[in-house]
C-alpha cells in the first residue's frame, strides 16, 4: 500500500444520513473476484440511470466534483454489509478521505486497509467542512494525517482523533499480515495454551 501523505483536494458534500454499502456499491458489482476497477460503479444507482447515462444532479457527476478526493457526509456513513468492495470502489474513484459524525464499524476498519482515512468529527465541524465542500473546486481542503488536522480554505484547522496503530500503518503503507506474522511466537504460544485449556475448540 502507498504511504499516506498530506494532500489538498476537492471535497464533495453528501449530507444524506445512513448512506449504506448497498448505495456505495450495489450487489451486482460484488460478483467480481478482483479488487480493482470498481470506481466506475461507485454509487451506481444514484449516479446513473438504467440506461447507464449519468444523472446530472448527482454530486460526483457535477463538473466541479468529478475529481473529488474527499467526501463530507451525513451520519453513519457506510452502514450495512461488510463488503470491502465499498472502500475498493471509493479508492478506485480516487477518494482518500471521508468525513462524518460517525461511521459503521466494519466499513471504518475496511477503509484503513485501502488507503482511505475516515475522520470522525463533531457535528459543528462536519457542518463547517460541508459548507466548504458546497463551494466545490473553489474550496479545497487539506488533510494532514501526520499532524491529525483537516483544514478548509479559510485556514482554520480542525483536529481529529485516530487510533495510533491505524495511523502508523496508513502513514507508512504497512501490510497488516506481515506485521502480525512478526508476532508468530505469541500466536504459537497462545495456541499451545488454548489447546490445553480448551481442547474441544
Amino acid at each position: 500500500m502507498e504511504k499516506y501523505e498530506k494532500f489538498t483536494g476537492i471535497a464533495a458534500p453528501m449530507p444524506l444520513v445512513n448512506i449504506d454499502t448497498d448505495m456505495i456499491i450495489p450487489k451486482v458489482f460484488l460478483k467480481t473476484i478482483k479488487r480493482s476497477g470498481l470506481g466506475v460503479n461507485l454509487f451506481d444507482e444514484m449516479r446513473y440511470d438504467r440506461q447507464g447515462n449519468e444523472i446530472p444532479d448527482f454530486v460526483l457527476n457535477k463538473p466541479q466534483y468529478r475529481d473529488a478526493q474527499i467526501l463530507v457526509t451525513g451520519d453513519n456513513f457506510g452502514c450495512g454489509s461488510s463488503r470491502e468492495h465499498a472502500p475498493w470502489a471509493l479508492a478506485d474513484f480516487g477518494i482518500k478521505c471521508i468525513v462524518s459524525t460517525s461511521f459503521a464499524d466494519i466499513f471504518y476498519n475496511n477503509c484503513f486497509k485501502n488507503g482511505i482515512l475516515p475522520i470522525v468529527l463533531p457535528q459543528e465541524d462536519v457542518d463547517k467542512l460541508m459548507d466548504d465542500a458546497e463551494r466545490g473546486a473553489n474550496a479545497q481542503v487539506t488533510v494532514d494525517l501526520e499532524n491529525q488536522t483537516i483544514s478548509g480554505p479559510d485556514g482554520g484547522e480542525i483536529s481529529f482523533e485516530v487510533d495510533s496503530f491505524k495511523k502508523h500503518c496508513l502513514l507508512n503503507g504497512l501490510d497488516d499480515i506481515g506485521l502480525t506474522m512478526e508476532k508468530k511466537a505469541s500466536i504459537d504460544a497462545f495456541e499451545a495454551k488454548a489447546a490445553q485449556e480448551r481442547p474441544w475448540v
Partner: peptide
Amino acid sequence: AHGIGTSEVEHVLATQTLIQQ
C-alpha cells in the same frame, strides 16, 4: 462473533488472528 472485510478475511486465513481494539 462479528463480520470482517476481505482484507481481514485474508489476515485471519494467514494468521488465525485479527488486529482489534
